[in-house]
Write a protein that binds this DNA or RNA. Structure first.
Length: 213
DNA sequence: ACATTAAGTGATT
DNA sequence: AATCACTTAATGT
């Protein structure tokens, strides 16, 4: 039996005081989404803010042709920074969010944000810190894009995927990886082969084992 | 057995 | 590193 209270305590207990946790539990709407399900589409109006209780969500940007590029993952005890900026200006989402693994989320109505902002110092801190870590993560992504070659990007991506799913065996296809990295399947296949030769990964059909973490 | 989907390869830009 | 054209291998019906 799944308990919101327990999950909250586990993921956010060190951040918020017990009384506040109870309030979150009361106000939040629990949602569980299976791997691969889309949570937010570009252009969507944001009305709820998600707190990740378990699992991981990948955040993607889309180019003019409809191809996508992975920006970063958000995990347990994270929230979507994009949502935060959307809430302030009541703007539409600039990103797409897709469940990377089976994920459990708690949705908070954005109206609560303001209330908690003035009521709880711990919430203030949390939002500010979230913003900060998100900016840093984005910077890291920019660095990766600008300075790393495709083979290095690929390996890093595999390691990130393994990290967020808490499993060094990835159940994915070359094509899916190609979408995330915004490249072609052929390139991914060839570089994976190379990584396998170097002993950094092991491949099977629909399965990649990351050996170097 | 056949169709579909994933992955491997060589050649070209 | 991308794209094309083609092959091979695995999987579903």
């Amino acid at each position: 039996m799944f308990s919101v209270k327990k999950a909250l305590e586990e993921s956010y207990g060190y951040l918020f005081e017990p009384l506040f946790l109870e309030e979150i539990e009361k106000v939040g709407a629990l949602k569980r989404v299976p791997k691969g399900e889309q949570l937010i589409e570009i252009g969507d109006l944001i009305t709820m803010m998600p707190l990740v209780l378990d699992g991981a969500v990948k955040i993607l940007r889309e180019d003019t042709k409809g191809d996508e590029l992975l920006l970063y993952f958000i995990e347990k005890s994270d929230t979507c920074a994009m949502t935060l900026s959307c809430c302030l200006g009541n703007k539409k989402s600039e990103i797409r969010a897709v469940a990377e693994t089976d994920t459990t989320l708690l949705f908070i109505p954005i109206a609560q944000m303001d209330i908690w902002m003035s009521k709880y110092k711990s919430w203030q801190r949390y939002i500010l810190d979230s913003y900060h870590t998100r900016v840093m993560e984005l910077l890291e992504t920019v660095d990766t894009l600008a300075f790393l070659k495709m083979d290095e990007r690929l390996l890093k991506h595999l390691q990130d995927k393994a990290k967020v799913s808490h499993d060094d065996v990835l159940h994915t296809t070359h094509q899916d990886i190609a979408y995330d990295l915004h490249t072609s399947r052929v390139v991914v296949s060839r570089l994976l082969k190379q990584l396998e030769r170097e002993g950094k990964i092991k491949m099977d059909r629909n399965k990649i084992t990351v050996l170097e973490l």
